[in-house]
Simulated assay, not measured.
Amino acid sequence: MAKMILDCDPGHDDAIAIMLAAGNPSIELLGITTVAGNQTLDKVTRNALSVCTAAGIRVPVARGAAGPLVNHQVVAGDIHGDSGLDGPYLPPASFDLDPRHAVDFIIDTVMSHEPKTVNLVPVGPFTNIALAIRKEPRIVERAKSVVVMGGGYTRGNVTPTGEFNVWADPEAAEIVFRADWDVTMIGLDLTHQALASVELQDRVRAVGGPVSEFVLDVWEFVGSTYRKVFEFSAPPIHDACAVAALIDPSVITVAKADVHVELSGRWTKGMTVTNFQDTPGMHHTGGVAAELTDFRTNVATQLDWSKFGDQIVDAVERLTVKVIA
């Protein structure tokens, strides 16, 4: 069983990630930490508690960073609405927040468990993880892995090259990518393969019950904004891909690469500059290219959509049984 801390900014795809992590028997969800991103910290924290309440999930939820390390905060209201999770009914929280700051919760959890047993899964801006590294550097050698939803090697969604989670706090992302631990980058090139298709929605609808209704309401709202803003036929379930990869690594195909975050380019700030190990000749050249040869990041390239969809449906079924019981 994989032990996980889910660091998130709910967010519609974050809501599905929370439910997948809590509903899969291969995951021990140690806690949820929140970070400003899709909406303000107050809103995303409330949303995390509401998702847990709606799906019968009871794990520690700790409130984290209210903004990026350097930049001014920017939210994604055009995608996620004013609440950050418009669409589904958000029930009042049925339990209280953990009293610790998310950074302290992350440090305490990683340091109190056996070495190489806790996986960190940041699916919002990486601010909390970067601050935790700065406050307690030993978490880098103690964590088992870091599976991030962020970046992209061919595209962005805020700028032509900048994906929101990295672009919103590029300095934090660079800290996380350059730390000496096992990092998997699940970026837009992968998550745009993870669409909440009509087929998947029909399978979730067939489950029935309140959890199914919540999930369908999530997809209905974010599906409409993705059609309007990005002309997608169905919304990507970005963040759940990171959880799915921890459940079953065969859900994704990865390639080794050196990943750096561009911090200062006028057009490229927030870009995840990705040099794949098998790019012909790149690691033999001099100059700047020679600096991009630390091939230790696993970059996701292909999704097994069938396995991914099965995971989503299975989690909805398991949570439904729990809620109805």
Rank of each mutant, 00 (worst) to 15 (best):
G156R: 03
Y226M: 10
M282A: 14
N128C: 06
A234V: 07
A196W: 09
G281V: 07
T117I: 01
P115D: 03
D169H: 08
A172D: 04
L200V: 12
D9Q: 10
E171K: 13
A36S: 15
E213K: 14
H283I: 05
G23F: 06
G152N: 11
L120S: 04
A62F: 06
A300K: 09
F105A: 00
N165I: 01
A66I: 04
T274N: 08
S26I: 00
V222K: 13
D304N: 15
A168M: 06
T33L: 03
D13V: 06
S264R: 12
T272P: 10
N157S: 14
S212E: 13
I57L: 01
G208K: 10
P88Y: 03
R100D: 11
L69K: 13
V299P: 07
D248V: 13
T154N: 12
L85N: 12
G187V: 08
A172P: 10
M1K: 13
N24K: 02
P122E: 01
G152S: 10
D294M: 00
G56S: 05
M282D: 02
Q302G: 02
L6T: 07
G281A: 01
P280A: 01
I79W: 14
V35C: 14
A65P: 09
Y89E: 14
V243T: 08
A130I: 11
F308D: 04
H113R: 04
I175F: 11
P137G: 06
L20M: 14
G281M: 01
G77M: 10
G286V: 06
W219F: 14
G265V: 08
R318D: 04
A132W: 00
G67V: 11
H80W: 06
G124E: 11
H260R: 15
G208R: 05
D14P: 00
N47E: 07
G162H: 07
I133H: 13
V166W: 03
H72V: 05
T154K: 13
R100Y: 05
A206D: 11
G162C: 08
M185P: 04
